[in-house]
């Protein structure tokens, strides 16, 4: 028990709580200096305040401790093994679709008629086995020598052979003049109409299709390619792949 009056005890608590000001505060501080027992009483109150603060802090940490422990102890939802395999498979399938989609998008964005043409074009080489004593015409000779500009510069008339017309069309193709090449290949095809023995017919259809593609006439190109693809006996049947048809269709849709 202490021997202090209720009044001074109240004053000490007010001082502890920072509620004393002015003269009252100065007066109490003087008394604290003069009476060690009063200072000791204040120390006890300060310790009480400190213990409350610590207790409050402990409670706060304990409350958060429980929240954190509850979070970490939440059971992980078990997935049925069949469902897990199914989910895994779906995830893999989705990834493949995604990668394939991205690849196709890339192809779609970067695809050009020139790329399709270059990937499927092969220079045409004339057969060299000739009867002895028969010379090549100037057009064929110049073509063999890869002098394409000179080939197309030669006069062309009704006396020209289908072979000469074909190398003329191929020369325009080599010179990247698809419009003229298309025109020439059409003549080769037309010249073969109603003939039992067709010369450079299959070759012309294939190279005409490629020139249509390079010239952005995709519908005409596709029509010819599909015609070749429908005939297994066509010389260029193996050249027309599903990939080529798909790419031309993609170009058509752009």
């Amino acid at each position: 028990m202490d021997n202090f009056t209720p009044d001074i005890s109240e004053k000490l608590v007010q001082y502890l709580d920072g509620e004393l000001t002015g003269n009252e505060k100065e007066e109490l501080e003087q008394q604290l200096k003069s009476y060690p027992a009063l200072q000791e009483k204040l120390d006890t109150l300060l310790a009480a305040k400190e213990s409350i603060r610590l207790y409050g802090l402990k409670q706060k940490v304990a409350a958060i401790h429980h929240i954190i422990m509850d979070e970490s102890e939440k059971p992980v939802k078990q997935i049925n093994p069949v469902k897990r395999i199914l989910r895994f498979s779906i995830a893999i399938a989705a990834s493949i679709v995604l990668v394939y989609g991205a690849y196709m998008a890339y192809i779609f964005m970067t695809l050009t008629p020139e790329k399709v043409f270059a990937a499927n074009f092969q220079p045409y080489e004339l057969v060299t086995s000739r009867d002895i004593g028969i010379e090549d015409s100037p057009a064929l000779r110049l073509y063999r020598e890869k002098k394409y500009s000179e080939v197309v510069g030669l006069p062309y008339d009704s006396n020209s052979t289908i072979e000469e017309e074909f190398v003329r069309a191929m020369s325009f193709t080599e010179l990247r003049n698809s419009e003229k090449a298309i025109e020439s290949f059409k003549h080769v095809i037309a010249s073969n109409e109603n003939k039992s023995m067709k010369i450079y017919y299959d070759e012309s259809e294939y190279y005409l299709a490629l020139n249509y593609i390079r010239n952005k006439e995709y519908k005409n190109g596709l029509k010819l390619l599909n015609k070749i693809k429908e005939n297994p006996r066509h010389l260029y049947y193996d050249k027309v792949s599903a990939k080529l048809l798909r790419k031309v269709k993609m170009l058509e849709k752009r």
Binding site: I52, R53, Y55, G56, K60
Partner: peptide, 11 residues
């Protein structure tokens, strides 16, 4: 008592 003291001195 705990509640009032904590609200006043801690909070």
């Amino acid at each position: 008592c705990q509640k009032i003291l904590i609200l006043f001195y801690y909070e």
